[in-house]
Design a protein around this nucleic acid. Structure first.
Lengths: 187, 187
DNA sequence: GTCCTTTTTATGAGCTACTCAAAATATGGC
DNA sequence: GCCATATTTTGAGTAGCTCATAAAAAGGAC
């Protein structure tokens, strides 16, 4: 099957729920700096480096960014960081459960700092815009598949596809008379 | 955003439900050969070529195959077909709605001929094994996200991740005392 | 069947996203 | 500050896919 050594690492981290973004303070473990991220990195058993903090900060400000986009942003504070370092940092932080990797069709991998809640994503098929969406309506069993072929399901990753409000409006303007596609919904 | 010209084309084809595999006979449009696929290709407005039929046949026999795996199988009957031709064929058939493209994490694109039902997939995080699973229990609204940010959702692509029966057994043998991971389930 | 137009495939080159190995450097416990 | 180890950098390489153009087939008209 030739899966890479990094395996499939999407959203497997069972962290406890809390607010995203600014990290939840590890009860001031050893009076760390005013940066919450430093404490969380440390608490994950990783060393705190400026590269890691910069990547985390970049993704805090631009969720769903690709490695390339992260690189651009990080270079504003660390002009000499290399592409490879960004990849390494993204991997180590993802393995540590501080980042979540997002794999969408026809797009390089994306990353986000919101790892605690198992939220899903809605992608506009027209413009590629990505929005976070909360878990599906109802309760967890909602996503229990009917027949699992003996597999013990751990996580359900859901990607909704549709038209964002902007694109829907644009499309409606382009083809008047055609009703807005807010109808069919195969689940 | 730099999405490729082929866009995100997963499971957008709203065909009517019927049995997968051997195609559903276009009511013998013009007494076509005994190959159902030829008729379906034709009905989609595409020309019937041996390359296309070979790719469809290959995917009938090996669902979820990658372009590479399709190439291997197709070469058994068409030894001179090129990689690029396989890519072209896969794209044209996907655009026509005769194939569905599957994008899983850390894996090249995969394809399947089962396009009519909007089924989902379960992937074993250990061995990469892929199984088809029917739509989630219950009814369509089951997958309606709570808050869509104004997006008109068309399709929900779900990838379940877990351990297949074989890997679960192997893991249980390796670490006795540790209970099987058939528990947590974040939806 | 033959001719002709259009679609499809083959050829060949090129690119993006990512990986790997080894050397240089920084972190953090002492 | 020192040292062991983790991390980043350097440099090279690969898989998977795309693009442009030329050659070849499909299929409708005759």
């Amino acid at each position: 099957m030739s899966y890479s050594k990094y395996g499939m690492m999407k959203s497997m981290s069972p962290a406890s729920p809390h607010e995203p973004g600014r990290a939840p303070e590890q009860s001031a473990a050893h009076g760390a700096a005013s940066l919450p991220w430093a404490a969380r990195v440390r608490a994950s058993g990783l060393r705190v480096t400026k590269q890691r903090l910069a990547v985390l900060d970049a993704l805090d400000h631009a969720p769903h960014a690709t490695a390339d986009q992260v690189l651009d942003r990080v270079r504003q504070s660390l002009p000499d960081i290399t592409v490879q370092s960004v990849y390494t940092v993204l991997h180590s932080l993802t393995d540590a459960g501080l980042l979540r990797q997002l794999d969408l069709a026809n797009s390089p991998a994306r990353y986000e700092t919101r790892v605690a809640d198992n939220h899903h994503h809605a992608v506009c098929t027209e413009c590629g815009r990505i929005e976070d969406v909360a878990c599906a309506v109802g309760h967890a069993p909602c996503l229990t598949p009917a027949e699992t072929h003996g597999m013990a399901i751990r996580v359900a990753d859901v990607v909704y596809q549709g038209l964002c409000a902007d694109c829907a409006r644009r499309e409606a303007d382009a083809a008047p008379g055609t009703p807005s596609p807010r109808d069919a919904h195969q689940g």
